[in-house]
Nucleic acid binder design. Sequence first.
DNA 1: ACTATATCCTGTATGC
DNA 2: TGCATACAGGATATAG
Length: 285
Amino acid sequence: MPELPEVETVRRGLEAVVTGRTVKAVEVLHPRPVRRHAAGPDDFASALVGRTFAVPRRRGKYLWLPLTDGDAVLAHLGMSGQFRVDATTAMTEHRHVRVGFALDDGRTLRFCDQRMFGGLSLSPGGAELPAELRHIARDLFDPELDLDDLVARVARSRSGVKRVLLNQAVVSGIGNIYADEALWRARLHHAVPADELPAQRVRELLEAARAVMADALDAGGTSFDALYVDVNGESGWFDRSLDAYGRAGAPCRRCGTPIVREPFMNRSSFRCPACQPGTVRVGQP
DNA sequence: ACTATATCCTGTATGC
DNA sequence: TGCATACAGGATATAG
């Protein structure tokens, strides 16, 4: 599932491929991934021909490919979105090609997406920051992030602390995997109300989230299957370093207690019942 | 204003 | 073997 480290890995791959390249042709093979483009698939395709990409950027899990004229192609990978370049792999292997960009160096960039939760759109004037992202908060790697302000905002919320970590309007880039990993590192239960945590514990949690995502980025991201790969089709290997997510029944790497899996927001949450106990005295010295 | 939930989507794994 | 069900979970619209 692409979260910040995976999206940043893709951004770096795109930077090497598209920067300075001009679009020769665009083909939209399925309308759903361009549903955010109000003028429709045909307009999306024709509007991009002849334009030139600048350096790709990212906020949280969103990517955008600025164009040298000040507009941008806004992209989100959703659950299963990928950008692929045909340099190394025959494109016939890709079963879910949705949009293709023919570039002026002869290469083809393809947006592939099995589940189609992701998508592309054209953002007028969006080169610096697409207007569509105004509600998306800065992420933990953003040099302009105000950490003190973020700590205060989290500590003000009455929601369970994992819900807050997943709220992209509070802090962006964190999904189910890194939320569980950050909570494990900070020894916090996912359901503890954020406003019951001392500010220092909130700060530790956010620093744990930043640290685990930095570790994952060094590893090229987390892959469980072929649903997340970089632009060359390569998997990341951080899944081997996960401490909580997906480890139900496996011993906690700190204390040996079996990790448990619990329902959470129509999905799953993983925690160590010994290191991350319930809400009793959580956060107290 | 804030919080919580339903919905979209398809492939894989599992159960009967 | 076939069919049904659960699960994966991002963002967003809608409800409370």
